[in-house]
Write a protein that binds this DNA or RNA. Structure first.
Lengths: 172, 172
DNA sequence: CGGAAAATGTTTGGTTCCGAACGATCCGGC
DNA sequence: GCCGGATCGTTCGGAACCAAACATTTTCCG
């Protein structure tokens, strides 16, 4: 157990602090577990797979995106990796210094920068990704196929709920 | 859609790169959506609730834990907030400088440091948390009660799967 | 008692992280 | 052509993030 208190204890302690206000405890509990799960999986994969290759989580994600979509423009890489353009600039600088990735200008539109893996980057990913996916499979494999499907669908529902809300904000 | 490619396109592109190796695509997809959902919810809550109070995600989480469990020792706060002790030291320094939290030594064991909210910290949380929970409720509220329950349970399963794996590693 | 081992929070060094401001480039209408 | 607005990647400043090394304090055991 990651925390030292049961759900019931936490719920009681919360009620003591917020008083009579109506709270959606189920929502808080669901999202709390969402973050806990994401953190747990992320550190498991970092410690068991990425660390041996001196690779950070974000560095790996960026490498993976560029591996799959060779020559992708930076802003799309940032979007796919779920990080800001500013963060990507720094991460690419790190990966470039290690000889794993290369920046490449676009002649038609000179504002653009395209990213490609170097041969070293490719061979690292060919070695690294199967290990990475094996651990992913090990973690998820304890759930039934049906549960995985439902789980994935609900996660997408959550993403869609957030994005729909953002669009409402834009319109108002 | 956060990325520019469909699941099918991505799957095909992956297979082109990993070749004949057997991959657990369902696991990769499930976990990819886990991170996407966690990131989406986190930035939504940060932008819509925390930003107005100039509060970071981690700062809020630490404040919340200490609010609920007054006088908790730092290592337990770090564990509950899912951050390292080193990170907590820095975050507490920031919150302390803003007069929201206070550090307090323990006379019985002088290695320990206990954390408490200042009156300003308490009044901030009393104002902030209901707003925070309202947005949480808005996001999760689009799912049926039954779905939320299943979802939460599966998230816990994932956490347990990771922790069980860690214990196996310890034993070996 | 006394000294080795364990536990606690902090410091150090280096990366990630983001919003905002910025220069460079492209596109639109005139 | 040309200039005002949009778009692109980078820079800047400040915070978060962690592993490893560290100093301090406590505990354990002979």
């Amino acid at each position: 157990m990651p925390d030292r208190h049961t759900l019931e204890e936490t719920e009681r302690a919360m009620k003591d602090h917020v008083g009579a206000l109506p709270l959606d405890f189920a929502a808080a509990n669901a999202l709390s577990n969402l973050f806990r799960a994401a953190n747990a999986v992320r550190s498991e994969l970092t410690n068991r797979v990425l660390r041996q290759h001196d690779m950070t989580w974000t560095g790996f994600v960026v490498l993976w995106v560029v591996w799959i979509w060779d020559g992708m423009e930076t802003r799309h890489v940032a979007e796919s990796a779920d990080i800001s353009k500013a963060t990507l600039t720094g991460v690419v600088k790190t990966l470039e210094a290690r000889g794993l990735i290369a920046r490449e200008g676009d002649d038609n539109d000179r504002r653009l920068v395209r990213l490609r893996l170097t041969p070293e980057g490719v061979s690292l990913m060919e070695k690294l990704y199967p290990d990475f996916n094996a651990v992913e499979s090990e973690i998820i494999g304890k759930l039934s196929e049906r549960k995985v499907s439902t789980f994935t669908k609900t996660l997408r529902d959550v993403v869609n709920a957030v994005e729909a809300q953002d669009e409402d904000d834009d319109a108002s």
